[in-house]
């Protein structure tokens, strides 16, 4: 049975069916991501002093990923335009470029950015024990300068036993009184050789930088994870439309393939647009 209105427009909507469908779907996506962004903003606004981390993400890598996604939007629209002009070869190459951009984005996210976080460790110190770790926190000076207190010691977890954690400190805790450490560093600084021993009884909560570590990482992994799943979905659809099966459809009905590419291109643009908001929210602000 022939599916109706894949190329011709429906008289009542003035659109072919898939276009109505994709916009309805994108409307539901706006509500999904809109809710998550709203939650992020309110959680951040309501965060207690010293609990919301800054400058933990790698801005140059995030910028590169943003550029890759913008480039992929250009290539997908050029793929669609090539089909409209009945240039299948050009379509094939542009689609390949789009797929590669999506794969590079996901690889950077899953093989570099996320694992870097999973290897990092943070221990929140109990309020009554903050003084004991003053040499790693520098709160006396921060209070004098009117800055938010530090309540967390971070770095690489060397080892732990029943009583304490042994942590190779991040520069912010290795040199807490250095004024340069009052600001976030957007180029990541390497972990120092300085080791701190933190007693477990002084620790409120200590984990690797996982979604359970704090609200910031819960939001970060939820939103970037959901976005990554959308990128993966888009890449899979593009791979299907890049495979020889698409050539058969093109030979039978090129306009039908062009419409399929347009609909998936709309989805891809939406996913990229979400990233245009994710990047400044998480990486820059």
């Amino acid at each position: 049975m022939e599916i109706p209105y894949t190329i011709s427009t429906r008289p009542d909507t003035g659109l072919w069916n898939a276009k109505v469908g994709i916009w309805l779907f994108l409307a539901s996506e706006v509500m999904l991501f809109g809710g998550l962004f709203s939650a992020y903003i309110f959680l951040r606004l309501d965060a207690a002093p010293g609990t919301w981390p800054h400058g933990l993400l790698n801005v140059p890598v995030g910028t590169m990923n943003t550029a890759i996604l913008i480039l992929s939007s250009v290539t997908v629209v050029l793929a669609w335009a090539s089909l409209k002009m009945r240039r299948y070869r050009a379509y094939w190459w542009y689609m390949l470029a789009t797929i590669l951009c999506g794969v590079i984005f996901l690889t950077v996210k899953l093989a570099y950015e996320w694992p870097q976080k999973f290897e990092h460790f943070g221990a929140y110190i109990k309020p009554e024990a903050l003084g004991k770790y003053e040499k790693y926190l520098g709160n006396q000076r921060r209070t004098e300068k009117g800055l938010e207190p530090r309540i967390e010691i971070t770095g690489h977890l060397h080892s732990q036993n029943a009583k304490e954690y042994e942590v190779a400190l991040d520069p912010v805790n290795a040199e807490p009184d250095n004024p340069a450490m009052d600001r976030p560093h957007f180029f990541p600084l390497p972990v120092t050789d300085k080791i701190a021993n933190i007693e477990k009884e002084d620790v409120l909560r200590a984990t690797m930088f996982l979604p359970t570590h704090n609200t910031y990482f819960a939001s970060y992994f939820t939103i970037t994870g959901l976005h990554g799943m959308h990128v993966l979905g888009g890449v899979l659809v593009f791979i299907y439309m890049w495979l020889p099966v698409s050539k058969k459809l093109y030979q039978r009905n090129p306009e039908h393939l062009a419409n399929r590419v347009e609909v998936s291109g709309l989805f891809w643009h939406f996913v990229d647009l979400i990233w245009i908001f994710v990047f400044p929210l998480f990486y820059l602000l």
Binding site: S73, V77, E262, F270, L273
Partner: peptide, 19 residues
């Protein structure tokens, strides 16, 4: 897609200016 692409490029330009 053409119109959405133009909207997307406008947002990307704003992001670049913001960055």
């Amino acid at each position: 897609l053409k119109a959405f692409h133009i909207v997307f490029i406008i947002f990307s330009t704003l992001l670049a200016l913001g960055t």
